[in-house]
Design a protein around this nucleic acid. Sequence first.
DNA 1: CCGCATCCGGAGTGATACTG
DNA 2: CAGTATCACTCCGGATGCGG
Lengths: 120, 120
Amino acid sequence: MAKFNFNLDTLPPSEIREEICSLTITQNVLQGRWKPLLIWYISLQPQRFGELTRLLPGISKGILAKQLKELEDDGLIQKEIFDELPFKVEYTLTDLGEQLLPVIAVMQDWGKKYIDSRQK
Amino acid sequence: MAKFNFNLDTLPPSEIREEICSLTITQNVLQGRWKPLLIWYISLQPQRFGELTRLLPGISKGILAKQLKELEDDGLIQKEIFDELPFKVEYTLTDLGEQLLPVIAVMQDWGKKYIDSRQK
DNA sequence: CCGCATCCGGAGTGATACTG
DNA sequence: CAGTATCACTCCGGATGCGG
């Protein structure tokens, strides 16, 4: 679970503590090589398992299943299972997941600035 | 270096590609257990090496030096060396590092939402 | 005081084969 | 089609000791 990096000897003021805590939580939830991309792709449209393996070349089924499960456990995505054959499952964002989109957007904005700054 | 997760067989449109690229870059730059916290602390005021070891209990000197160096190499922070004895070094954010603060802020906002949603 | 070098353990990631 | 299980491997993070 999350480690909050507090110093128990010289505990910082609660205001600071809350900032540390909030930041660390978000960092932990997004920790995983494919998670930001997964959230972004799912935000574009509901995605199926197989489709995600096609969108994310190089990802293995094992790690895809694991990271999807972690995102689900953290309440960012939900899956809908259609009772058909062959099986069909769709992943969509929860409300909490939707609220994460501004974070993704700001990260993308900064990435572009970074690229610009490196091209000089 | 950064891996951009493109599928070379079915290359996505350049617009999509840029979003993937930007997002992945930011993710890579912030990858490291202490980096977001380091940037945040340094943004509050210029920080010295020893002060950071106090602010981040549990971090070892080795990993602190390493993550600071990576942040410096990525152009997010700069260090000023004072020619005194004992040695004194101060870390400050670069312009590029300052531009990262909105990302940190949005992450903190979302962390608070996450905490609220879990307390119900 | 600051930071590097080395070594080490464990987590995160990935390839493959197999199941419902 | 949508996963699970296993194994192997890399790399990050941490401890320690040395050097400027």
